[in-house]
Design a protein around this nucleic acid. Structure first.
Lengths: 224, 224
DNA sequence: ATTTCGTCTTTAGAATATATTTAGAATCAA
DNA sequence: TTGATTCTAAATATATTCTAAAGACGAAAT
């Protein structure tokens, strides 16, 4: 695998490089944003490890470059502290995962593996739909950067919708996915109405009207 | 350097010893957990290579001994399978790295070098979360510079939370990591409530309300 | 356009599931 | 043995999920 490590703390940079090279990986480094952006634009990396608190420039630039150049590198953001805003920033930047300092190299390693594994299966750590962002790690959904207070079923429902956005989901399918073979319930699906309603309320409270009723067939999550 | 190789597959054990001795290292071996624990407690090793699938005893014991005796040996776990839980468990147990069978000796060697090199950064010395600092060497947690009087379980719980900050940890996962496969307990998880409660009390006594309940899913350690 | 019927929405609250807290018994370590 | 720690058990508290029922809406038939 080929990595770009954009980190200006040189001993940390070196630790990561050594750790990754140990497994036969190819590493390139960047110590400031200019260098990081440039390399990210030109070369194809499998994973980019990006410290958003580099002294020069803005982390957005590097990620924008990646999007513009349609680079498919997985991005793991290193952030110095774990405040909510930083985390949200991480989500906004479109990173695949984030890790907060200080961390164990082995922990970084398992995140890298998760990101690489994901490329194949597509199970994202962070999901997005317009102003809605879901951090599956903390099981928290954000709307316009604000954490939503969702119950477990509401959260599961939202995740299911977003991972099937645009597709009509029948009550049967939804029930099967959220309740499994709990056959007591599967006679009627009235309870779905209630959960849909509750989730809708919380979404529309923030101005998001994404759950459309497909009369007679189900629901779909889609732009107005 | 001085090594302890705790491995009961004798030809593998011998291979490792020969490989390391060729570079002028001192090696001692142990073929069961009793021997490994005893030697680990008495002698000072730079690196301990520990097969967690030894037939006798529990891998926890050796690592617990190391913690109790405040031994600073780096630990590399050899594990027979490579499931994620095993990996995480290994890290949680305080190991510095892990390697899964089968492996090339050269790979083991580079892991050893990484572990030796590490000490520097990310060495498992100090963990931090806002005003909380944990000195893993002395197993002491400080809050605003003040040492907290934590019991073992409370300390372990706090470390587990902070090393997985932001992530929802189910009671099952917590139990698995703090109690291992002690299957007597794993039927119900009520005792978790008590430890959470106790830890919370001690944290909130200092104004830190970081343990959030994720109703129905678990707990997470996170900014308010 | 009106009726009709099946489908969906909405609400309130009952039932259930989950979490907190306390006290004390059992266990462990010094 | 003693004191600290850990676990058990039970009460209390809280949150979620489901049921039920009344009304609104959509679509097809008249």
């Amino acid at each position: 695998m080929k990595y770009l490590i954009a980190e200006d703390e040189l001993d940390l940079q070196q630790s990561i490089v050594t750790y990754l090279q140990r497994d036969g990986n190819i590493c390139e480094v960047a110590s400031d944003f200019g260098e990081a952006s440039e390399k990210a634009a030109i070369y194809d990396y499998d994973v980019i490890i990006l410290d958003i608190n580099l002294v020069t420039g803005s982390g957005l630039d590097v990620l924008k470059t990646l999007k513009k150049e349609k680079k498919r590198a997985g991005v793991i953001i290193i952030s110095a502290n774990n405040s909510l805003t930083d985390k949200l920033e991480g989500l906004d930047l479109g990173a695949d995962d984030y890790i907060t300092k200080p961390f164990h190299l082995a922990e970084l390693n398992s995140r890298i593996n998760a990101v690489l594994r994901r490329g194949k299966y597509g199970g994202d750590e962070i999901m997005e739909f317009n102003e809605i962002k879901i951090d599956t790690k903390s099981r928290t959904a954000y709307i316009d950067g604000k954490a939503m207070a969702l119950t477990r079923k509401e959260y599961d429902l939202l995740v299911f919708f977003i991972s099937n956005k645009g597709r009509v989901l029948s009550k049967e399918i939804i029930a099967e996915h959220l309740w499994g073979d709990d056959s007591d319930l599967l006679d009627n699906f009235d309870f779905i109405y209630v959960h849909i309603n509750n989730l809708r309320k919380k979404l529309t409270a923030e101005g998001a009207k994404y759950i459309k009723t497909a009369y007679g067939s189900g629901y779909k999550f889609i732009e107005d």
